[in-house]
């Protein structure tokens, strides 16, 4: 632990008194040191694991500021936190790894990747609702009456006050605009 800067004790004691600048300086100075110590302790860990361990150490340090005694060196305090939190992170990784399956070799279209049988229908319906929302109010009203609520032309004419012919033309145009809004090209 000879790498400890003499200022660390002063900074950490000042941080306990609420000095944000000293605390920031300590954390900035300790960050590369923590990364190096983590790589030394867990040489087989991936880069992201090392960053997670360092992050957990920083958070645990923040919660445990009250535990530091200014008469003691800072490096063993930081390293002690890292050993305990790092071991916990590694244990969690191993526990999760036992329940995980690598998906790299599974085709994207595999049925195993579907979360539930209605998933595709639900996604399509949500996309169509969003597209209807982008149409004009008149188009939305026509589609709502004739396609969603499935009223007859005569019923829709009575509700809206439009003629049956106007409703037919309006429906044709609204559907064309809906197809366009959903990115579906018309086949001529």
């Amino acid at each position: 632990m000879a790498e400890e800067d003499a200022n660390w004790r002063i900074w950490l004691a000042a941080a306990q008194a609420g000095d944000r600048r000293a605390y920031g300086a300590l954390l900035a100075a300790a960050l590369p040191w923590l990364r190096a110590r983590a790589r030394g302790r867990w040489p087989t860990a991936t880069l992201s694991d090392i960053e997670d361990i360092v992050q957990e150490t920083l958070l645990a340090l923040h919660r445990s500021l009250a535990l530091y005694q200014p008469c003691r060196p800072v490096a063993p305090f930081l390293f002690g936190i890292m050993k305990l939190r790092g071991a916990e992170v590694r244990r969690q990784r191993h526990r999760h790894a036992a329940r995980e399956t690598i998906l790299d070799d599974v085709p994207a279209t595999s049925e195993a990747l579907r979360m539930n049988p209605d998933q595709d229908a639900a996604v399509d319906q949500a996309a169509m609702q969003a597209a209807i929302g982008r149409l004009s109010l008149r188009d939305q009203e026509i589609l709502d009456m004739l396609k969603l609520r499935e009223l007859s032309l005569l019923e829709a004419a009575a509700v809206s006050g439009l003629t049956v012919t106007a409703l037919k033309v309006g429906t044709f145009r609204a559907i064309r605009r809906l197809r366009h809004a959903m990115g579906v090209e018309d086949v001529e």
């Binding site: 941080a15 944000r20 605390y23 960050l31 360092v54 992050q55 923040h62």
Partner: peptide, 20 residues
């Protein structure tokens, strides 16, 4: 969140503590 940003966030929200 990167650890560099975390450091800034932690320093910003520091408040004094009673030493155990």
């Amino acid at each position: 969140m990167s650890n560099e940003r975390l450091i800034t966030a932690l320093a910003d929200e520091l408040s004094p503590v009673y030493r155990a």
